[in-house]
C-alpha cells in the first residue's frame, strides 16, 4: 500500500469542469504513476485538452481535486505546479516570439527549473540537444516552421526539469516522418524515466510509446487499460465510429 502511494505521481479525483452551461469534464478520475507513459485518445470535444488544462492549473476545476506527488495542488497557480515538476506543451505551439530559441528554453530553465547561472545554461543546452534543436539555438522563435515549433515547445517543457510531462497533440499536423522523429525523442525521454501523458489523434504513433491507454468521450473516461484492450473495447469503437444503424 505504501509503495503504491509512493509511485503515484499524479492523482486527480472527481474532476468536473463547466464553462457556463457547457459541461466539458463530468467526473474524471485520472492518475499517473512514476515512469508511466499514458496515451489519451478520444473524439474531438471529449475534454482531453481541458483535462490537461485543469491538471496544470490553467483552468480551475468546477469540482474535484488534483494531487501531485502526494500534495493537493488544486489551488496552486500554474507557475508553482511547473516549479514542482509538472510540465505541459500546447497543441498549437506558443513560443515567446521576439526571443531566440535559446532564450525561450533558458527562461524555462531559470524559472521553471529553478536553476541559476551556469546550471540553467547547461540545462537549457541539454534540453535543446535532447530535442535536436541545438543548431537552431540562435534563431528567433517566430521564424521556425511547425515541426521546429513543436520541438521548441517540447524543449521548453523539458528545460523546466519536469517529473511529469503532459503532451497535447504534439504530433498533430506533422508528416509521418516528422512525427516519427518526435516519437524517437519521446521514447528517449521515456527510457530516461520521465512520466508522460500524451494526447494524440494519430493512434498508431501513440501506440509506439504508450503502455497504458485512456479513452475519453463527452467529458468522461470510458476506457482505461492496456492499449490493445482499450482499442477493442466496444464503447471506444462506438465513440469513434458512432453507434450502428438503428
Amino acid at each position: 500500500m505504501a509503495n503504491e502511494t509512493e509511485a503515484l505521481l499524479l492523482d486527480a479525483r472527481g474532476l468536473h469542469k463547466r464553462f457556463n452551461a457547457l459541461v466539458v469534464l463530468s467526473g474524471v478520475d485520472f492518475s499517473v504513476h512514476a515512469n508511466e507513459t499514458v496515451g489519451v485518445v478520444g473524439p474531438n470535444g471529449a475534454g482531453k485538452t481541458t483535462l490537461l488544462s485543469v491538471l496544470v492549473g490553467a483552468h480551475a476545476p468546477t469540482a474535484g481535486e488534483v494531487r501531485f506527488r502526494g500534495a493537493d495542488v488544486t489551488a496552486l497557480p500554474t507557475a508553482e505546479r511547473c516549479r514542482q515538476g509538472l510540465a505541459r506543451t500546447h497543441q498549437i505551439p506558443r513560443p515567446f516570439s521576439g526571443m531566440t530559441v535559446f532564450e525561450n528554453v533558458l527562461t524555462a530553465a531559470f524559472h521553471g527549473g529553478g536553476q541559476g547561472g551556469d546550471a540553467a545554461y547547461a540545462q537549457a543546452a541539454q534540453a535543446l540537444a535532447t530535442t535536436g534543436m541545438t543548431s537552431l539555438a540562435n534563431r528567433r522563435a517566430e521564424t521556425l516552421g511547425l515541426i521546429d515549433r513543436k520541438r521548441l515547445e517540447l524543449a521548453r517543457a523539458l528545460a523546466t526539469g519536469p517529473s511529469l510531462l503532459l503532451l497535447d497533440e504534439i504530433g498533430g499536423g506533422l508528416t509521418d516522418a516528422e512525427a516519427s522523429e518526435l516519437v524517437d525523442v519521446i521514447l528517449d525521454l521515456k527510457r530516461g524515466g520521465l512520466a508522460i501523458v500524451w494526447i494524440e489523434h494519430i493512434v498508431h504513433v501513440l501506440l509506439r510509446v504508450a503502455e497504458r491507454l485512456v479513452c475519453m468521450d463527452a467529458g468522461r473516461i470510458i476506457a482505461d487499460g492496456a492499449p490493445a484492450s482499450v482499442m477493442s473495447d466496444p464503447a471506444v469503437i462506438e465513440a469513434y465510429l458512432g453507434g450502428g444503424p438503428g
Binding site: P77, A79, C82, R94, F96, A108, G112, A159
Partner: peptide, 13 residues
Amino acid sequence: EDPDTVGLVGVSA
C-alpha cells in the same frame, strides 16, 4: 509576449 504561457515555464505573470 504570452502571459498565459509563462506559467508553464514557472513564471508568475
